[in-house]
């Protein structure tokens, strides 16, 4: 697959990717496995799992894994530029228009309602994360202590991640040492 072709495929994927993470795997599987037979379903699910375990945006990680697999480093860069192409211009356009609409009373009413939807969506995301985790004593301990740290000390997310990841790894390390004995 040429770099230009790869770019165009990702422009298309970026344009039809709507509504969050659920659609990433099916869209990319249909494009690279079913249609073009460049990758296997197994490779796709591997990349999806890896994309989720790396930091950053899952859809972007997934695209870059595939780009790298197909065309090396330049493939990864091209995948990155392709996937953001349409969304980028859509946001710039909508953001600019929205700025001049915000003074309208009805637009404000819509935005007020949508603001509540955002809170609901965040709460639902928490529920989803919660349900997809193994909730043992370790989970509750890290969750509660990091939440309390955030609420009472106003630390930045990065600081909290640093501190508690270190605590978590230490905890697991001690657990492993005990098991090994």
């Amino acid at each position: 697959m040429s770099l230009l072709k790869l770019f165009l495929v990702y422009v298309k994927i970026g344009a039809i990717l709507l509504g969050g993470g659920y659609v990433i795997l099916p869209i990319m599987t249909s494009e690279f496995v079913d249609k073009r037979k460049l990758l296997t379903t197994e490779e796709m699910t591997d990349y999806f799992a890896l994309a989720q375990s790396l930091p950053g945006i899952i859809a972007a990680n997934m695209s870059m894994f595939i780009g790298y697999k197909l065309r090396g480093k330049s493939g990864a860069v091209i995948a990155m530029l392709g996937i953001i192409f349409v969304p980028f211009w859509a946001i710039v356009l909508l953001g600019t228009i929205l700025g001049s609409l915000v003074s309208n009373n009805y637009v404000q009413a819509v935005l007020w309602g949508v603001g509540i939807a955002v809170i609901a969506l965040i709460m639902l995301t928490i529920r989803e994360l919660w349900q997809n985790s193994q909730r043992n004593r370790f989970f509750y301990f890290i969750f509660l202590t990091s939440l309390l740290t955030l609420l009472f000390f106003k630390l930045s997310p990065v600081a909290v991640i640093f501190i508690y990841t270190a605590v978590g790894i230490l905890f697991k390390y001690i657990q492993k040492r005990r098991m090994d004995k």
Binding site: I126, L129, W130, N132, S133, F138, F139, Y140, F141, I142, F143, L144, S146, L147, L150, P157, V160, I161, Y164, T165, V167, G168, I169, F171, K172
Partner: peptide
């Protein structure tokens, strides 16, 4: 460890 931290964030 990052899962419970993400939940807390």
């Amino acid at each position: 460890t990052l899962k419970p931290i993400s939940c807390a964030l």
